[in-house]
Amino acid sequence: MNVPARITVCPERQMLEYMLDRNRAELIDTVRGLSETEARRRLVPSMTTSIGLIKHAAFAERKWFQHILGGLPESACDGAMVGEASFDISDDETVADVIAEFERASSRARAIAAGIDLDATREHPACGTVSLRWIYLLMIQEFARHAGHSDILREQTEATRRS
């Protein structure tokens, strides 16, 4: 994922898109260099793993951009659409596969959002009326939080390498 140099002043939409892309890239960077075993290691009681966070982020992209913003039925979205199952990684999926899945979902999200005004609204069954601006802010928050989770998992993994 190619993120431009740090941007601090620009129009609102450009800033939102930049921050979202930056957080997408940060999340991916947390798994680069981990082995397949390390990326799958469960270091907390939940289903959270480094690779699982990327897989879940791809689900979030599909849910919010393809299904809610784009209006596609869940069956027409290009991947798993079940929340908790989005952390499940099959034995045949690699880190590279999951990163590629997330990058495809991110690319499709960009394409869907490109022609939509920030103030355009859609209905979400649980959240009610949401705007594209709100979706951007939600995804920025979501990916920043998950990058932080994955940073901690990586730090724990790297500590075990040294011991």
Results as ranks from 00 to 15, higher is better:
V82Y: 06
F87V: 05
P11Q: 13
M15A: 12
A80K: 09
A57G: 09
L43V: 06
S150C: 06
E155L: 09
E36C: 02
G70S: 05
L53M: 08
D88I: 02
E36N: 07
A5I: 09
I135Q: 08
F59D: 03
I116F: 10
G52P: 03
D92K: 09
E17V: 11
L138K: 13
L27R: 02
L153I: 03
A114D: 12
T160W: 03
E101Y: 11
S131M: 09
R108E: 08
L118M: 07
I89R: 02
I51P: 00
L153C: 07
I112D: 09
V95S: 03
W64E: 02
P11D: 15
L20M: 13
L132N: 07
E26Y: 11
C127K: 14
T157E: 04
F65L: 08
A147D: 01
D97S: 10
T94I: 05
D88Y: 05
M139N: 05
R104E: 01
S90T: 15
T157S: 12
Q141R: 13
R42I: 04
C10S: 15
E123R: 12
I116K: 13
R13L: 07
F102D: 00
A96E: 13
E103N: 09
S50Y: 00
S35M: 06
A76S: 14
A114V: 01
E158V: 11
A25V: 05
E26I: 05
